[in-house]
Amino acid sequence: MIDWGAIFSNAAQELISPTTAAYALAALGLAIHFGYTGLLNFGQAGFMALGAYGYAISTLTFHFPVWAAVLVGVGASVVFALILGIPTLRLRADYLAIVTIAAAEILRLLFTTNTFDSVTGSATGLQGYKGGFAALNPFTFEGTVGFGPWQYNAYDWWIRLVGWIVVILAAVFTWLIMRAPWGRVIKGIREDEDAVRALGKNVYSYKMQSLILGGVFGTLAGMIFVLPRAVVPANYQTSLTFFIYAILLLGGAATILGPIVGSMVFWVLLSFFSGFIARAVAAGWLPFMSQVQAGQLRFILVGVAIMLIVIFRPQGILGNKKELAFVK
């Protein structure tokens, strides 16, 4: 029979998992790009990879302390945003889409190639960079502590705490700037950049600021993402960006809480769905399906979900029906 308890408990764990936090933060960065500024960044996976590799390589190769490793990652993503933005932010919106998707792939291929194996670990990736972060852990208890399905050891609680604090700080920051005149200019650019230019605003500079800011959020998300796992280049494929878009669209593209709620809903539902299908297959309820096929269903589901949301509820769960986040 199907173990419903395990399915629900696994799904509930996703609610506060560091992965959920990382996706929420990356989606928040994308909300700044896409939802508020109208920039089509399809390279968020690249920003996340820079965070993950920037942190891991600084720690492993250069033996940097945690704060310096974080700064290296953030610095790398600022440079990356400048490289992407300088040629494309003056051009039509779809050029940025093509360039960002290409640049993210270039990064992934550079991280995957055997040529730099000694630094990047090539396809194998990197691990063993967590010591510095774990040493900062104020929790000292033994074994697992928690309530309900959320039972974790000290390190697991520590990464959840840090991850979600970063998400909350980023959300508050975004909220502050979006209600300020800065946010007004940004939203104006989304509507019509020529009009904003005609009012004396340096549109190019604002777009660049937006690209850098959202990219830095992506980079921080990339760091949170690798705290509970290893850095593996295969994680930073284009489909990672698409997943983040799915989360953003689900929650509402031009909202602050949308990406966070979207990430929670997305991962809880996905975990529930995967858990259910996997166990149903194991129990022989779905004789036409293998375990491997059951694993692929989730991607099909995400793809269909993206299509349906964009067509039928473009404002997402939390978005305002009137303020659709799409540039014409």
Partner: peptide, 8 residues
């Protein structure tokens, strides 16, 4: 979305 769905 369509690309992702069809691919899988």
């Amino acid at each position: 979305g369509l690309s992702l769905a069809i691919r899988y």
